[in-house]
Simulated assay, not measured.
Amino acid sequence: MSLTLSRIRAVNAVASGGSYASAARTLAISQQAVARHVKELEAEYGVRLFDRKNGVLSPTPLCSDLCDVAERMAEAERTATRLLTRHNTLLNGRLKIGLGNSMPGMALIARFLKQHPSIEVAVETGSHERITRAVLTREVDIGVLPDVPEDGRFRRALLARQNVVAIVHPDSPLSRETSVTCERLTSEPLIFRTKGSSTQRVVDRAFRLAGFEPAPLLTLDTRDAVYEAVVNGLGVGFMWRFGTARTDIVHRITVSDMQRQYEEVVFAQADERSLLLDAFFATVEDFKAGAGVLLEP
């Protein structure tokens, strides 16, 4: 026995229109096809779905119950269609974006929403490792991260170039410095990020190349946690230079061993193509045109 969507639609259309002809016009199929769907369903299940009264096909009580189910199925179809199409429309579409740093990704999203205010944007934040994995598993549509590998898996667009800097409390003696070395930092209480962080990879590499392996005072899992630890005078932290738009008491200091510029890129799976993705990548170019300082080498 086959209870197909086509048969359910036919029954519902006949119940609504009162005839095979009306149902055929609604479904844009032949009258014979509608009649066949109904009669085959009645024969296979041994039921009667319609009574003919004064030339009109009236649903039986069983058919009315079936039509209630059909309406719920039709709404589920409409919901499924909306889910499938909203990623490829600029009208009430939906985009999920993964950020490793709040900035400059949030500024880019703000520009995108200004251009496309009807788009629903969901933002997920996390480590470099977490966001890269989320793009690969399609948990997010687009990622914004520094130091993304160049390979065939990704469609990429350069957003900014930036390096990692030390951040210190204004009461720290380091706050009067414009540049420090890794060697100088080893005498300070250090605040590190957990493994998987792009920031921490740069920090670990710089200390290792300078010949040091310092033990941190604290190891924290988010950039915001590191920032707040520094605000509270717990030690010296590290962040991407444009990692936040906050301009409060924390001082950014160049680390001479960490001056290499890394590219912050917008990336998606190479085989993902849609109007929404194209619009977001177009916004990247528009954003860069108005934020040239972020692209200075």
Rank of each mutant, 00 (worst) to 15 (best):
G196E: 08
A166L: 03
Q200K: 00
L174W: 05
T181P: 05
P189I: 05
L185D: 04
A166S: 11
V180G: 10
S197D: 11
R184P: 00
E213F: 02
L190S: 06
T178R: 12
R193A: 13
I167E: 06
V168T: 10
N163K: 15
I191G: 01
P170K: 05
R193E: 06
V164S: 08
D204M: 08
S187I: 01
I167R: 04
R205C: 03
F207I: 10
S172E: 03
A210R: 09
F207N: 10
E183P: 00
S179L: 09
V164Y: 11
K195N: 12
F212H: 15
L185M: 11
Q200C: 00
T181W: 12
V180H: 11
F207P: 07
R184A: 15
C182Y: 12
G211R: 03
I167M: 12
V180E: 11
S198L: 01
R161C: 12
R176M: 11
L209K: 13
A166W: 03
E183C: 01
C182F: 12
T178N: 13
T199L: 01
N163E: 14
V180Y: 10
R205T: 07
C182V: 11
S187F: 09
S197Y: 05
R208P: 00
E188S: 08
S197L: 06
L174E: 07
I191R: 01
V202I: 15
P189W: 04
K195L: 13
E213G: 12
S179K: 13
V165E: 10
R176K: 15
K195A: 14
R161I: 03
G211W: 02
V168K: 02
S179P: 00
T186G: 04
R176A: 15
A206S: 14
R208F: 03
L209G: 03
Q162E: 15
R205H: 12
H169P: 07
R184L: 13
N163T: 10
A166V: 03
T194Q: 11
Q162G: 15
L174G: 09
A210Q: 09
E183Y: 02
A206N: 11
D171A: 14
T194F: 00
